[in-house]
Nucleic acid binder design. Structure first.
Lengths: 201, 201, 201, 201
DNA sequence: CATGAATGAGGTTTCATTCAT
DNA sequence: TATGAATGAAACCTCATTCAT
């Protein structure tokens, strides 16, 4: 974001989400975003440094909001908390299909090119997940030895992949979100238990 | 367009995989692919109808080859077969990191835009998976009633998402492929059991 | 447009001189001039019709002021008067380096596009010079025949070119203005004598 | 210049000279240059890196050619040689009015932004002039002491200014080139003698 | 079959100017 | 009077595709 905070910037981001969803980031035209947001093309540049910065801000906003939701989850049981976290993640995306589509296609750009400050929310969310995951491990594993970070990250990544895939399914089928979510969580929980039960390599 | 059979086309596809991996499909330049393949820019168009068709052929070739591998898997136990299928899928991608990166970034284009004939191999692979999955269900579920197709597809999609994510992890970390694969399969198997054990909605 | 008299307009012109000096007329931004002048962007248009009119006014102001100085020069000897005129011209520019830089880069626009009324001062200055020049000729040339106007204009133009070049040198070197001026006048006087001594073509 | 030497590049430069002459560098459109050169817009970029590089090449070509001409001038008498040098300089510009106009308006950009290699010809020409000037001084000044470099540069700059101004006059009037040149040289020679006769400051 | 020079449509970005406050 | 947020036209440059050789 450049100069003005506030509503207009958010409207541009919403418009961008829908245009990105339809055309993908690379093919998306700034002028289309402007039209969709009901502003002049040039106005985009009053709020964002360029097309890339729009994408960055869009994801940054998403993760920041998600981080807030994550913070509210205080389920003591780590497994249930992980369940809730994945559920919130899924729901946030499921509730905004335009953004969800953009997430599926272009989130890797955010990870690759966004500058660190804009990744704050993302890092926070990942950290929440990791902590819950480690607690599950500690709970399971009476011997007390911690799993290697790589091992945790890997398992966590696979869970994310499951959420991602369930979301993709949701977007391309008529199955109700609730059913998709349930199935996803069911498989995820089983996966977590398998991952934390296994001897760490 | 008219695909001249032979080596040159395959070399172009290999070159394309590396260029797509580095730049992504949208930013990739046809001339860069040509240079990387050691042919003139114009020659590309003797073998492919355009940039889009290169992508299509690249994925088509991948799925065709994978379909061949899938056919070889005749493990009688459906769960083990599913395990082997996911393993083969993972290994094929893990063994060609350039293509893997392209798969992660641009496979959705293949699904969205490729013409049906070029999807043959893909459809075959999916079908192999679905059949194994259904057998697992049938095996578990003594009542004999089939799960809804949607339910099967969803579970399958989530499994794919897990493979996908584990692959992404592999590309971005130093963890050995074997370890990633083992963990992925471990979680996948658990997920499958959970998915097939649950009452179908 | 309607030039509100007063200080603000002059401040804007001063600001413009510095911005033009730094960026050149074409690259100069109106908003930069406004900022430099300490007024809002829109206010510029209360005093001037547009960017072009700013340039026009800037040069117009310069020539008007110079015309006033020229009027004060009443040296009877025409050669000495010419010497003084060139000196005053040089000094006025040397004393405002921002404007001088703009003069060197963009004065041609003034000559090409300014409307006649704003060229009043310029015309007056040129006329002063021409008159002195003709007197020198008349003084030299006992036969009394006047040189052709073209011939006079040409010689005068060349003198202006010398002043211009000496000014450019001044801006790009550390040589003191006094030395530059002396050398310039020395060469100019020699040039004038040569020009007026020669048989007119 | 980028890839191909040869005719096309030169034609583009000629077209650029005419467009720059008409519109000035900043307002000149690359597409207009392309049209004027009879090539596609994109072709420009096969030969030049951009609009700026066209300007650079245009001036570079001019100075390189002039340097060749300068080399041919072997008049032993330094004053006459200087006379010839200024004459050649004038004639080269007078013979290509489009370029001359561009020279008058935009040569400062070349000096400010061109990279050193492209200034080679320019430096050579200036050096030729300086050497002749110093010889004149040495010839005049029997005491043998050299004038300060700054002093030489200044005088030389003023001479260039005279040529420049005479050229401008030529472009804006109907006076024959020969007459303008003669008058210019007459004044220049007188100026040189004045400059070299004066005690060096 | 093979080439690569040539093309030109199209997108991002800038900035002079306006006008509601 | 004064402001500065908003506008949208315009231009540089890229690159997929073609075609003469």
């Amino acid at each position: 974001m450049r100069k003005k905070e506030g509503d207009k910037a958010n409207e541009i981001l919403n418009a961008a989400a829908s245009v990105f969803a339809r055309d993908g980031f690379d093919k998306a035209q700034v002028s289309a975003i402007a039209t969709s947001a009901g502003v002049g093309t040039g106005s985009i540049y009053l709020y964002f440094g360029g097309k890339g910065e729009i994408l960055q801000s869009l994801f940054s906003r998403f993760w920041d909001r998600l981080a807030v939701e994550m913070t509210k989850l205080e389920t003591p049981d780590p497994l249930l908390r992980l369940n809730d976290q994945l559920g919130v993640f899924f729901e946030q995306l499921a509730s905004d299909r335009d953004f969800a589509r953009t997430y599926l296609r272009d989130h890797h750009r955010f990870l690759e090119f966004a500058d660190p400050p804009s990744k704050r929310g993302y890092v926070v969310c990942v950290e929440f997940g990791r902590r819950a995951f480690l607690e599950v491990v500690a709970h399971q594993d009476r011997t007390g030895h911690a799993p290697s970070p790589a091992s945790t990250d890997l398992s966590q990544a696979i869970l994310f992949g499951g959420v991602r895939a369930s979301l993709e399914f949701l977007l391309n089928n008529d199955t109700p979100a609730e059913i998709v979510k349930t199935r996803m969580l069911s498989m995820a929980m089983a996966g977590i238990l398998a991952a934390t039960r296994d001897p760490q390599p």
